[in-house]
Design a binder for these strands. Structure first.
Lengths: 96, 96
DNA sequence: TTAGACTTGTCAAATAATGACAAATATAAT
DNA sequence: ATTATATTTGTCATTATTTGACAAGTCTAA
């Protein structure tokens, strides 16, 4: 299960030398939840990504991109025609 | 909201000159549900796609690809970094 | 105006996601 | 060994979302 988002926010949190207990309250959750989010077991709410970006002093676009990429990966992973799916989506985007 | 899948199965059903009431029972649903699926209001179950492919005498891979492409499109549509997301996912696939 | 095909709306039931908390584990300092 | 702190894991009631089933609606063409 893809979890680039979780890995990245953990990396950032550690770089800032912050503990889960210091970050979790900003997102209005406990450390258990945030731990699971970093491990990809639970989902963060999309709206919370911007808050997290601020706390971790990073770019919210980067985090949102990783988060969306994880969602997409989880949808198509294990599918034999995954590449075809991505091609189809890309093609459609250009037509619209 | 992307609905290539629904449009395609309607097209196929009409080509086979089948009515909703003739197809719906194969999927163990009523015409109302199938109608909504064709319109993209409700989701078909992934496992039902193969059955539908048989009934409509088409390739199940094609239908599954369209169905997955719709899911992906709905995830990323409206996102400013949608293209970046697709690129990220493609890149990750190659690495794994 | 009736019949058939399809669509729309509603709502209870089923299913999944979330929040909150307790308990477990890990690590390091005392 | 014991304590303290950080993180992880498990559980479970609550909440949210999805589904299935049905009734009633529109639309078209006899």
């Amino acid at each position: 299960m893809a979890n680039q988002f979780g890995e990245r926010i953990r990396q950032l949190r550690e770089k800032q030398e912050l503990f889960l207990r210091q970050v979790a309250p900003s997102l209005d959750m406990d450390t258990a939840q945030l731990s699971k989010i970093e491990k990809g077991i639970r989902q963060i709410k999309k709206e919370q990504i911007a808050i997290l970006a601020e706390v971790l002093e990073t770019n919210k676009e980067e985090l949102l991109t990783l988060w969306l990429a994880d969602q997409v990966s989880n949808l198509i992973e294990g599918e034999p025609m995954a590449d075809e799916v991505l091609k189809t989506v890309s093609k459609n985007r250009k037509n619209n």
